[in-house]
Design a protein around this nucleic acid. Structure first.
Lengths: 139, 139
DNA sequence: CACCAATTGCGACAGATTCGCAGTTGAAAC
DNA sequence: GTTTCAACTGCGAATCTGTCGCAATTGGTG
């Protein structure tokens, strides 16, 4: 994996004012080598393979720190608890207002259509999808 | 909230072969009255207000059942563990192959653009977003 | 109104993640 | 190089959502 922004993860970590500790070196190496989307347990396993003794708590903390500083992306993050709504007649997506927690529904037939096209081009059939856009009010 | 599909939740529940029990009556009433996206704790609170004694386990089970039968939608469901990737230079979205668990990245400038347009129309500024499309291979 | 599988309440359990704390260690300042 | 000290780590306990086993209850069909 090449360095995004033409800076290595290590460089970006230091740039963010974070310490380059031994466990972090290992974890960054693992992240850099990964071309998939590992979960914490898998990251821990790979880190352990390089350097036994790294605690899973450290992996959790490091991933949180890196995510806060924008060095990595966390997917499928359980944004708190699951939330429900009576099934609407028509699918819609959501804006989540980060300042208020408010949820606003919207729908775009255009987006729906493009999704179909791309999925088909990849040989997939869509079962479902979710599009959550995290926003804040424009000043 | 009006009844989707021109059938009430109650009707659809019976239609699905599910029993209309006392706790479910209350929960359906709560769902029907909700115009937001409550979580289980909130649903339980509202249900308790109408009829004390309803267990939170029942709310969990009922929501699962309703979701399985398509009467409600579950958002932000913690699909197992969180997964990570080194922050890519460019944002991309994900296909999740439900049969294999495999994750495939894709990107559509068109979708990105439409999102911007819609957000702006709502008076929002996008902080981030996630688009996960759950798919299966086309036969 | 009898029957019985579906459903419930309860508390125990589970899996993922966080936290408190004492000990360690980068790296900045001598 | 030392010194210094807040950042960081490892550990196990704790927390937080959500699920489960089980005995008791109950829709709703015959």
């Amino acid at each position: 994996m090449p360095q995004p922004d033409s800076l290595s993860l290590t460089q970006r970590l230091k740039q963010a004012g974070l310490r380059l500790t031994a466990p972090r070196k290992v974890i960054l190496r693992v992240l850099d080598a990964a071309d998939d989307h590992p979960d914490v347990e898998e990251l821990h396993r790979r880190a352990q393979a390089l350097e036994p003794g790294i605690s899973i708590a450290t992996v959790y903390r490091t991933m949180n720190t890196l995510a806060e500083h924008g060095l990595i992306e966390r997917h499928s993050f359980a944004a708190g608890r699951a939330r429900y709504e009576a099934q609407p007649a028509e699918h819609h997506d959501h804006f989540i207002n980060l300042e208020t927690g408010e949820v606003v529904e919207f729908r775009s037939d255009e987006i729906e259509r493009i999704q179909q096209d791309i999925a088909r081009a990849h040989g997939f059939e869509i079962v479902s999808h979710r599009l959550d856009i995290f926003v804040r009010p424009r000043r």
